[in-house]
Simulated scan of single mutants.
Amino acid sequence: MSELAAGAAPPGPTPVVDIHTHAMPVPFLRELAREGLADLSGIAANVLTLDPALCGLPRGAPIPLAPEQYDLERRLAQLDTAGVDHHVVAAPPFLFASESDDERLVLDVTRRSNDALAAFVADSGGRLTGLATVPVGLPGAAAELARCLDQLGLVGATMGTFGGRRELDHPVNEDLWAALAERRCFTLLHPSRVSARDRLADYHLVQLLGYPVETALAASRLIFGGVLDRHDLTLCLAHGGGCAPAVGARLDLGWHRKPVARVVDRAPSDYLRRLLYDTAVFDSKTLGRLVEDVTARHVLLGTDTPFDLVDHHPLETVRRIGLTAAEETAILGGNAAELLPGLGLSPTPAAADVPDRQTLASLTAVPSPPAEGRHT
């Protein structure tokens, strides 16, 4: 007898879900403007400026503000144009106040940002759902996560790569990691600052280069700091992990040959293969290598919509790789349906054909490199 109940309709195609998108609701921006923390005078030209304490950019630095960031009708039309059924929406890192040392400001702005995002997605007819911004580095992060999930109806979390003048592996974040793990909460890790900002000041290098490097730095601290050993996280690295996938072998070499780096039980690349990644690498060949390295089970559609550094044809980017039907379905929506049950989507049965995390370790095991020799 069929697994379907008698008379039940067969499952339809899995909806296409973009898990890396952003929104900045205008009511919240107007609140910030009244407090002198934002300037909306350039909104007609699709530009916003924010106080450096919030955005981490030099004073007056223009931030793109496409109408789809706040105009719901245009946002839904954008989904249709891209062939996407559902957006998982997060505040952008410019609202994280990652480098501020004013704890009260960070917690207040984060809370109001989450309230505004929840109201924005609530009017979307079910096509948008929100991620809670959690203020890493601050003692109130776990409490804000609980409020957003339990009271606001947000379906997961997003966080920056730094906060409260502390790195992600700082002990202050242990309560947050524990809460995320206990709830099996999908979390989008988004770069929110850069090191050596003066060297990245030209050519838009803060975001073009600084952000990918920052993601690799954050992932490395989570690995070597033991966070991924202590907590089973559902953690997705934005922008395809930035530089992290490319430096896995070098991190492994250091783990084997440098005693100071031999502080975790497994090679760093093993941890990297257990994380999740979005598809926002903007090139099918690069995406194909990522899928080959971590398997389709660990990759989710993500575009960075509606910023200007966006993949306008995400389905085409994925379909050019030449994946199996099960792999393609998993990336385009099946993984999201499984990892974000709050979306209310049913994972496709085909997703079962894609190896899961437990199987992954045996599928991707690699021999240890020799201990002799030098690498610089």
Rank of each mutant, 00 (worst) to 15 (best):
P11K: 15
P11L: 15
G12K: 10
T14G: 10
M24S: 12
A33L: 10
L37E: 03
L37M: 07
L37F: 03
D39Q: 09
L40G: 05
S41Y: 13
G42A: 08
G42V: 08
I43N: 01
A44W: 12
T49A: 01
T49M: 01
L50Q: 11
D51A: 02
D51S: 04
L54D: 02
A61E: 05
A66F: 09
Q69G: 13
Y70A: 00
Y70F: 02
D71C: 13
D71I: 13
L72P: 03
L72A: 06
A77P: 02
H86Y: 11
H86I: 09
H87D: 11
A90Q: 06
A91F: 06
E99W: 13
S100N: 08
V106Q: 00
T110H: 13
T110A: 15
R112F: 12
R112C: 11
N114K: 12
A116N: 08
F120N: 09
V121N: 07
A122L: 13
A122I: 08
G126V: 14
R127G: 04
V134S: 09
P139K: 11
A142C: 05
E144Q: 11
R147K: 02
C148Y: 07
Q151P: 10
L154S: 11
V155F: 06
M159K: 01
M159V: 10
M159E: 03
L168R: 01
D175N: 07
L176C: 01
A178D: 02
A178Y: 02
L180E: 00
L180F: 00
E182F: 08
R183M: 04
R184F: 12
C185R: 12
P191A: 09
S192Y: 01
R193W: 06
V194I: 03
L200A: 15
L200H: 12
L208D: 07
E214Y: 12
A216I: 14
A218C: 12
A219N: 00
S220Q: 11
G225D: 08
G226Q: 04
H231L: 05
L235Y: 05
L237E: 02
G242L: 15
A244F: 05
V247K: 01
L251M: 04
D252Y: 03
L253A: 02
L253P: 00
K258D: 11
A261W: 14
V264L: 05
P268Q: 00
D270C: 14
Y271H: 04
Y277M: 13
D278A: 10
A280M: 03
D283C: 03
K285I: 14
V291H: 04
V291C: 05
V299R: 00
T303S: 06
T303H: 04
D304F: 09
D311L: 11
P314N: 08
R319T: 13
R320F: 05
I321A: 15
E327Q: 09
L332V: 08
G333K: 07
G334A: 09
A337K: 03
E338A: 07
E338S: 09
E338F: 03
L339Q: 10
A350T: 08
A350F: 07
A351L: 12
L360Y: 07
A361C: 11
A365E: 00
R374K: 11
